[in-house]
Design a binder for these strands. Sequence first.
DNA 1: GAGTTGGTTAGTCATATAGCTAAGTATTGC
DNA 2: GCAATACTTAGCTATATGACTAACCAACTC
Lengths: 109, 109
Amino acid sequence: MTNQLDSFFSALADPTRRAVVEQLIQGPAAVSALHDGHDMALPTFLRHLKVLEDSGLVTSTKKGRVRTVEMQPKALRAGADWFEAHKSMWEGRIDRLARLADHLERTRT
Amino acid sequence: MTNQLDSFFSALADPTRRAVVEQLIQGPAAVSALHDGHDMALPTFLRHLKVLEDSGLVTSTKKGRVRTVEMQPKALRAGADWFEAHKSMWEGRIDRLARLADHLERTRT
DNA sequence: GAGTTGGTTAGTCATATAGCTAAGTATTGC
DNA sequence: GCAATACTTAGCTATATGACTAACCAACTC
């Protein structure tokens, strides 16, 4: 559980990997196609892909000499859910603070 | 921009720090109160708090000898927004795939 | 004003991460 | 079957991260 979120968030804590996620939202792509436009050596880029795959955010399959990478919907949802759960708790608290502030404002005047 | 999300996601990529965020949703708390229940030396714990503060997720103020830490709503929203933007793009694609699958299913039978 | 409490700073260590080059393997195309 | 393509593996380096201890400072409390 905990470990899942660890690798999930740290996978997204890098601009290269977030860019790959954004590319893959358009649809699956080959490693070399994803690599184009990223100014780094291929082995370095492959390590980023491995991080994404280990986190469960993407999967890949090899056909012939081409490896195709694809987003994995469930993983993205797990992270979004964490946010939803905590954001709503937080916003509930904000609302209470806002009401308190209103109250103080009214009673002062 | 990019840098903001980097530090934001890596701040959340650690169970101790996520636990602190969850504690702080209940309301502000002193360093020592937050530290209770986390089985690690205080200096180590302080570094985690610094990471959270550097990421903008929390702020802190010192009064007398007590430092009080507090969540920062805007920062949480920035991350949630990133998710919302990309999740919806992704889910749009899922819907298209589902329709395609339906179509293929129908035409085959 | 001496001791306790709450936090801070400094310094060490081990492991992880992000980058590189160089060399290797396995398909595909001519 | 030889060359080009598309990764893959191995091995190196530098920096970042997460943990610790020890020693320190500042502010309450007797």
